[in-house]
Design a protein around this nucleic acid. Structure first.
Lengths: 149, 149
DNA sequence: GTATAATAGTTTAATATTAAATTAAATAAT
DNA sequence: ATTATTTAATTTAATATTAAACTATTATAC
């Protein structure tokens, strides 16, 4: 059965870049998942802890925007982190609909402990690219990410 | 509470590139998800159909390797596509452990119908990058993806 | 030829993820 | 001051996703 659809040169180039972007991202995610195996954290749980670690306390809405997940998912991931005593929710004093999420002492200790190894893993994997290439990859992805989000 | 961990310049650069890569990939995924809303397909279901469309029939192991998903997940995604009559499993004649997965006529018609719009969406979103930039992004991501997978 | 190891896919349990509907609260319009 | 609209988070239902254990089959070692 022959494919009826024939993409233009422009479409082929975009599709090719898109596929490679997704594969690269998926490959890194698999690697990060592997690195977290001993901690009992999932990739998304780590993402939330990392966001709170690097930026400080923020609302669930802001956490969701930062790691690009839906509000329903953020509720559940934070539920599980709260259950483990790694984060806490505090009702916002200025908007009683909202919660401010922050790291507990345990959460802070865990991410402080895990993050250096995470940084080493990412650094090792991206070491396949030269400094110039890493800077260029960051620039291109930022340009792409800004246009879409 | 001050973060105790201070990344090196090299680690900062790698982490920065990694975060931007993940954000770009996540942004595109959200966009693809939005585009598929009317079809009733999920992003992973579309990914399986797309792989079969572009490459032809293959084993579940090969599908999983192509879209970087676990064997348990592939089983479930293909179960759901089979349930909708879009793919079929045929036991391999050379290895009775394995199935060969292929598109049905309905599956072929659906992906033939959807793919042009998918190509247009991807082309529009990546249009924020110049031709040279798209080629470079593809090259960098391929280099990264190969090293990890 | 037999025993052992590896493999393809399934199942299980737990968590992730989405869209849509819902509730409570804040904001905007009148 | 009241009503309508928007928003933050939760809940629901469906599907996705992983690691690990399992079964049936194939490949390898002896």
């Amino acid at each position: 059965m022959k494919n009826n659809y024939k993409p233009t040169d422009r479409e082929s180039r975009s599709l090719g870049a898109y596929v490679k972007l997704m594969r690269a991202a998926e490959s890194v995610t698999v690697r990060v998942h592997g690195n977290l195996a001993g901690t009992g954290l999932t990739v998304s749980q780590f993402g939330v802890l990392e966001a709170l670690y690097n930026i400080g306390p923020m609302t669930q809405k802001e956490v969701g925007a930062k790691i690009l997940k839906s509000s329903g998912n953020i509720t559940m991931v934070i539920d599980n982190l709260e259950k483990r005593g790694l984060v806490k929710r505090t009702r916002s004093s200025e908007d009683r609909r909202a919660f401010v999420v922050s790291l507990t002492n345990d959460g802070y200790a865990l991410i402080d402990d895990i993050f250096p190894e995470h940084a080493r893993v990412i650094t090792r994997e991206l070491g396949v690219l030269s400094i110039k290439e890493q800077v260029e990859l960051a620039r291109l992805c930022k340009k792409l990410g800004l246009s879409l989000g």
